[in-house]
């Protein structure tokens, strides 16, 4: 577990020293959430219909934004070569990096989510269920994103390829996340989409770092 903890600590430290990169995701999330009602007008009916989906889409776009840099530095400066000769499994490095990335980019996004709910005319009593949906949504987006980022590494069209690769994986996450918030908002049981989100997370949490580590090893050859 040392490699996981060391990578997590190192990336958090790096992130805190590059404040611009940390702020990018939550600022983007807030911009999308604030600009949409300004563009569509403050009609509560429109906001009621669009709010849950908009929160999920804004979270998706914010998570996608800095993703192609995830492994780029470590690949370019030879870190991944050294990690391949480390006795610890490469998947621990991937898991540590993803956890740090989530803390740096998605945790601030969850922190500002209640504020965005007010902007989107969503009742604050829904903050709990919204966060309960956005937590697995953001984590799943990051886990799928890290695998895509590893696949796109070494291609000249990394960012475009990454977006194209990830959209099919992001769609179910987006649908379950938005429908959980929407059902709750309409006073219906949001249990099923939430269950599916957390079940997906339970599968992806161990599987995605293993898959990403295998991709990184393969790319190196």
């Amino acid at each position: 577990m040392s490699l996981f903890a060391d990578t997590f600590r190192r990336d958090i430290r790096l992130g805190l020293r590059r404040k611009g990169q940390i702020l990018m995701a939550p600022v983007f999330f807030m911009m999308v959430s604030v600009l949409f009602p300004l563009a569509m007008g403050p009609d509560p009916v429109v906001l009621k219909l669009a709010g849950p989906g908009l929160l999920a889409v804004a979270a998706l776009l914010a998570a996608l934004l800095p993703l192609d840099t995830l492994f780029r530095d470590d690949d370019a400066d030879g870190t991944i070569d050294l990690l391949l000769l480390s006795p610890a499994p490469l998947s621990l490095y991937v898991a540590g990096k993803t956890a740090a990335y989530w803390v740096l980019t998605s945790l601030p996004l969850l922190a500002v989510a209640p504020l965005m709910m007010i902007v989107l005319d969503m009742p604050l009593r829904m903050a709990g269920i919204t966060l309960c949906a956005l937590f697995p949504v953001t984590f799943l987006l990051n886990l799928a994103g890290q695998t895509g980022a590893a696949l796109a590494l070494g291609t000249r069209t990394g960012s475009i390829l990454l977006a194209l690769l990830l959209i099919p994986f992001y769609i179910p996450i987006l649908i379950f996340g938005a429908s959980a918030i929407d059902l709750a908002r309409n006073g219906l049981d949001a249990g099923m989409p939430l269950f599916l989100l957390w079940a997906l997370l339970a599968v992806a949490l161990p599987a995605a770092p293993l898959a990403t580590a295998a991709i990184l090893k393969g790319l190196n050859e």
Binding site: D77, G78, L82
Partner: peptide, 27 residues
């Protein structure tokens, strides 16, 4: 090979935003 080899490639694997000690501590 992870038990036998120390590797030094052409790249230094240093993070510019970390101190020398922090860079080394990672390994």
């Amino acid at each position: 090979p992870e038990e036998k080899i120390h590797w030094l490639g052409v790249d230094n694997a240093l993070k510019p935003d970390l101190t020398v000690r922090e860079n080394l501590s990672y390994w």
